[in-house]
Amino acid sequence: MRLTTGFTSYLYCFETANVRIICPIAEREFEGHVDIVTPYGFSGFVGNGPCLQFPFYWSEFVKERGYVCGYIALNPIFEKDAYFNLNKAYRSNTLYFLDLTLSINKLFSNLHKNRRRKLKDFDKTVFISDRNALTNFLVGNYPAFLRRVQAPRAAYFTRETLISLCSLDNVVVVGAGTVEKIEAVYIFAHTRYAADCLFNVATPEGRHYATLLLWWGVNYLKSKHIALLNLGGGVRENDSIARSKEFFGPIKLPFRALKQVYQPKIYEELCRRRGADPADKTGYFPGYRSPAVSD
Results as ranks from 00 to 15, higher is better:
73 A>V: 08
109 S>I: 02
116 R>Y: 10
113 K>Y: 11
112 H>R: 01
115 R>N: 15
125 T>P: 13
92 S>P: 00
61 F>R: 00
100 L>A: 07
116 R>E: 13
113 K>A: 08
88 K>N: 11
123 D>M: 03
123 D>C: 01
109 S>P: 02
67 Y>K: 00
120 K>L: 11
105 N>I: 03
99 D>P: 09
81 D>Y: 03
60 E>C: 12
85 N>G: 02
69 C>P: 05
64 E>F: 06
62 V>G: 08
73 A>K: 15
107 L>V: 10
119 L>V: 11
111 L>G: 11
96 Y>A: 01
120 K>A: 11
72 I>S: 05
114 N>D: 15
68 V>R: 00
108 F>N: 03
76 P>L: 07
73 A>I: 02
104 I>L: 15
69 C>V: 09
108 F>H: 14
84 F>T: 02
119 L>F: 10
120 K>M: 06
112 H>G: 05
58 W>V: 08
83 Y>A: 02
116 R>L: 07
128 I>V: 15
65 R>A: 05
82 A>M: 08
63 K>L: 13
59 S>K: 13
89 A>S: 13
114 N>T: 14
95 L>P: 00
80 K>M: 15
105 N>C: 07
61 F>W: 14
77 I>Y: 06
86 L>E: 12
112 H>F: 08
73 A>C: 10
66 G>P: 14
79 E>Q: 13
94 T>Q: 14
96 Y>S: 05
123 D>V: 05
89 A>E: 07
58 W>G: 03
127 F>K: 00
124 K>W: 04
108 F>P: 05
122 F>R: 00
125 T>L: 01
67 Y>D: 06
73 A>T: 13
99 D>R: 02
100 L>M: 04
92 S>D: 06
